[in-house]
Design a protein around this nucleic acid. Structure first.
Lengths: 232, 232, 232, 232
DNA sequence: AATGAATGAGTATTCATTCAT
DNA sequence: GATGAATGAATACTCATTCAT
């Protein structure tokens, strides 16, 4: 399973974890300002070129104050990844509410993911660099999303809406598609002019979904998926 | 198309480009030693923690010598990405030689990609960080591989071995699957003990190929791919 | 005129310029320690062999602190030239206070200049090298002093104490004499034994002043300066 | 006196000194190419930014060849100063040939000096930096020229063409005037547009000569130089 | 709680000089 | 004699982190 042990990581990054200093309203606001600033600065400059001063300046607070809220540059980076991860999953889950079936849910989930990608380019950039800065938090990020996919796929398989493919492998494949397509067709699309990336092209979205849905579609009776016999 | 203009980038990184100093046998050996050392050091430490001294020490040459062969740290990084890209594509192409049909070719190509991933973990790590260090070379890397996929898909479509899905979008999806699955099931698998990652688990490989082949399979007559009508 | 535009240069080098960080008492002391150390180190080693570490060590502060006060090695060099220039002009002006006439003022001014040269050998050495490091600040230095001479000469001409020679050309000539004589008879005199250079030899001083005063003396009626007719 | 001991210095810098490797015609040509290149490069970049490679490239010879002709960067610098010094003195001496009297000779000498300054900006720049690079060669340069002045002044004094001022002090004053005026009115004049500096403005030249000639003029009988009595 | 002055470890890059060819 | 590849010492500058206020 992908549960691994991320608890220590999450505790360190969670400002409200037991043991963490209790903040009042103002303190919480400062913390949020720091996370927001970090999102912007890390996205723009990357982990190494981002500096604590730049983050605190952007947050409009004093440099020393930073260390009242985060232990280190790496800590706020991890907290940011975890925060973005929470939000992207929320965005996907929300989009999927009320989907009538797996097919609709799939579409809605990907749409939610792409929308978040467009609105928060930091997610992609920060996750990219996470491999080097904090491999653990990177794995946490992907694992959390994959867990959601797996759960959805398993439920759909139970009611025959998805083929009997290994749910976990399929989930990682979906994760890969989502990230690569998001990068290629949303983030890089307008990169040249420095504009904020916009929505994904609807035709591309349709093609991607067709690819995915075909891959997952339950095999019509009497039709074997290609390569089935050889592989297993 | 994905042709973009990478020529300037390639010229700068190509030690044999016209205009670059002509090397004799020994010079070429030194250059290769540097690239090999860079592969190891960048993979182990990442771009920022890698230092020129560490690279030259590993290459067994003097520090100043580095600058006789590469203009800067960034230049050797780009050269390394381009070199790895060339080799991974070679590895894939070689594996595909003699494939009887698209299906076999697909399998062989992915197998080649996964084998290279296992043998050269640097590829993944270096490409990850490239997003921040040199976005251009990152795009070059992905684009080059995608071009290969697109060409293969188009040929297969022409003979009815692959559905009429948009070849380019499908190619980016394949790229995403390959990278994510390679990371998850090859590189992270043995990460804890620092061992050199091994082969991909055959079962996982079979599942991945099934996923891909189903997605690309030509639709049996009379069967519409799901979601087709709505999307287009 | 020699007014040129040195304002930008002076603003950059002026630690109290508007826009520069406001320093408290301690900060100002640190800044002064840096300038003093720079004076000593630049004078001893020259611009290129002086290093930031040597300067900060001499100032008794941490290396990084340097960059809180000056943007770069070149900046502190320029600030030092401007500071020394201010002080040498102050030294000259002070000496000239209470001079009864141009003749006395001239003597006093040169005496002030020579005294400063003896007490601050850095002035000469730093100015010498400035030609290569920052030509602008070199011109500023000379121009500022020359401006003072010009003003004095013009006033003296108005009351008939100085001949009608072009004040500006005469001023540059005086500048040249002062610098060369100061170097030759003060700085080089004891150079061998590394001792701090002392006062100028009174006889030499008398000869120099006689040279200058003769050159500037108003022509007695009926006597043409030699070469007058031919040249103009 | 100003004889000091420059013999060792001259021997080291003199490529034809006994003990130096005997050169054939080709070797001498290479040596001259190096000196010419050094003049250009040092003048343009200053001692520190000039590099051996730049000099040898400009001379059109291989880098290693440099060390067959000069022991070090400093050595060629000193040789260059000595060479320029020889040439500027030659230029002055030549100009003075056939001067009818001290006055004419003085004019001619300064004209020769200014002409050389305009044609060889390297002289000024190289001499400026020499203070830091090789104080000995700097003193040699000035001393040699001053010796010439002293000799001339003494001869003129003997025939009553120059006042009884101390010849040596006067000579250093003249040296200072020549250098400062040359810098100000020749080299800096066109500095902005990077053009090769031209001739000195004839009016300025006339003013300078009037200043000098007045300073040196024999006192008309019955007229004491101002400040004479007080000073001595 | 908030601040920001002070610190010094860490690193890319240059270049005079050597020496094998 | 001529060459130029190889070397490594030397240095300006950045920035995460501490701590006195």
């Amino acid at each position: 399973m992908t549960t691994d042990d991320f608890s220590e990581l999450e505790r360190r990054a969670d400002p409200q974890a037991p043991g963490a200093p209790r903040r009042n309203k103002r303190g919480l606001a400062t913390q949020q300002k720091l996370l927001d600033a970090a999102e912007a600065v890390f996205a723009e400059l990357g982990y190494h070129d981002a500096s604590i001063v730049k983050i605190t300046e952007r947050a409009g607070i004093g440099m020393g104050t930073f260390y009242l809220y985060f232990d280190s540059k790496r800590t706020i980076f991890e907290a940011l990844v975890i925060d973005l991860n929470r939000r992207v999953r929320h965005s996907m889950a929300e989009a999927m509410l009320g989907a009538a079936n797996r097919l609709e849910a799939e579409r809605a989930g990907f749409a939610g993911f792409f929308r978040f990608t467009a609105e928060h380019p930091a997610l992609y950039r920060v996750v990219r660099e996470a491999e080097l800065v904090s491999p653990e938090v990177l794995r946490l990020h992907y694992s959390r999303i994959v867990e959601g996919y797996v759960e959805g796929l398993r439920k759909a398989q139970a009611v025959g809406e998805v083929s009997d493919i290994d749910a976990e492998v399929a989930a990682w494949a979906l994760m890969g598609i989502g990230e690569m397509v998001g990068a290629r067709y949303i983030l890089w699309e307008r990169d040249g002019d420095g504009q904020r990336p916009g929505e994904i092209d609807p035709t591309v979205f349709a093609d991607v979904m067709r690819f995915i849905e075909t891959a997952l579609a339950p095999r019509p009776a009497g039709h074997e998926a290609p390569g089935q016999e050889a592989a297993q």
